[in-house]
Nucleic acid binder design. Structure first.
Lengths: 238, 238
DNA sequence: ATCTGATATCTGTGATCACACTTGCATCAG
DNA sequence: CTGATGCAAGTGTGATCACAGATATCAGAT
């Protein structure tokens, strides 16, 4: 990077940008991560003061963070004003799946058209990591969940649709708690095994720039994972 | 509605529910309305204290409200920590339109299948109101915008997809500022004239439960409104 | 033993204050 | 007149306090 003004190049160029992150933003991402990986169970109540104490801050940043999460439906405020992780119903789960198929399906198809070689390399790496972790004797559920997410989002990112990407994050934030909570408590082996297959097909389709095939592979992935949860009958009907 | 317990029916049933709305929620909806109807121009900065003063409250409720709006991308926080209404780029506008066609198109098609007679009556009423206001000598831009929104959302509501409905609200919140700001400043006659036609077709399709035709009418509506803005070349390329 | 009642604790909400950072404007040197 | 410099006003962020409503706990009466 050349110096901005006519100023001579100096050691200043090696200075790294300081990240003046807000506490509020930090709390937000921490809670978000806990939710999306299923470490907070659906229906669980969140007391602002408890969260603040656990993170060693005051109420304020927590309030901001929770307000943001509430806007994304990642948590819900009850009539009593208490906030909790939403309980997933069968109907809501199915609707979320329908929307995911539309949105993520479209992005996957676009990714096949727009992915750069760098994108593909990144996706390949993540697929390899996911497969490797999966084939271990005792796979780490948390890591598996994270790698699965990173793989999918690497694909969506390649579609060059930032707005859609943001919306998909919101969808995962809503569906993540039940999906990953269930997978975390039960043996996730069976469902993840098929996931590897779908991911392989998806990657192959992207590499030959076959949009419809990529979408098909993704759809299979989403549908089978959804069927797994629906089949376990843990979701209330209403 | 029957009494909940074995208690005898009494005048209590006529009591109306107390609305214990939070100030924060009120601020949120006020700002939301201002944004969606284009009464705050894109790029405009929002000072928390100004908003608080204008609404006669303290900073606190405003902070909560803005945090929620930021989570929905209805406002953006700059690196300087100032918040402003996002400036729309051509690319973002087109992406939003693509997503709208998917999401709103799907909901419209579902509405054709699931709309109850009450839904259809409500939609008919709103269509009549919109048409009436439109045919006036000097139509009220604000009212026109509001009626247009209510008509569309009455349709989406009939699809019985609450999650999608919420997402669509988010989309309108993002696209509303430019769309309605532009329509408000310029003569909206030309673009609204065609809107009436599309709405008429949409309603007719719903009444004969023709999903694909309803989707087509909606698509035409969205595309033509979008083309109107894009054609005016007011959006920066990047 | 069961229900009713009051009380103490805990909840989110809103206001106020303190602070660090940014921005704008006036001042002064060239 | 043009430029940089310094001060003042304004900004969002975070902490703390005050308070009303909800919840849980426990005593007493039937």
């Amino acid at each position: 990077m050349p110096p901005v003004n006519g100023a001579p190049a100096s050691g200043l160029a090696s200075l790294e940008r300081i990240d003046r992150e807000t506490v509020s933003g930090r709390v937000y991402r921490d809670l978000r991560e806990l939710l999306i990986s299923g470490e907070i169970s659906p229906g669980e109540k969140l007391a602002l003061r408890s969260v603040a104490a656990a993170l060693g801050t005051s109420l304020m940043p927590v309030r901001d963070a929770v307000a943001r999460l509430a806007a994304e439906q990642a948590v819900e405020v009850m009539p009593n004003r208490t906030v909790r992780v939403p309980v997933m119903t069968r109907g809501r789960f199915e609707e979320l799946r329908t929307i995911r198929l539309m949105l993520e399906g479209h992005c996957t198809e676009m990714a096949a058209a727009h992915a750069t070689p760098q994108d593909l390399t990144r996706i390949r790496e993540l697929h390899a990591d996911f497969t490797a972790e999966h084939d271990m004797d005792d796979p780490d559920a948390g890591r598996l969940i994270r790698l699965n997410k990173e793989f999918h989002f690497a694909v969506y990112k390649a579609s060059r649709m930032p707005v859609a990407l943001q919306m998909i994050e919101g969808l995962w934030l809503q569906i993540g708690p039940v999906l990953n909570f269930d997978l975390r408590t039960k043996s996730e082996r069976l469902s993840r095994r098929v996931a590897v297959g779908h991911h392989t097909e998806l990657l192959a389709a992207l590499e030959r720039r076959d949009g419809p095939a990529a979408r098909k592979a993704l759809s299979d992935d989403i549908v089978s994972a959804g069927d797994f949860i629906l089949g376990r009958n843990v979701l209330p009907v209403t």
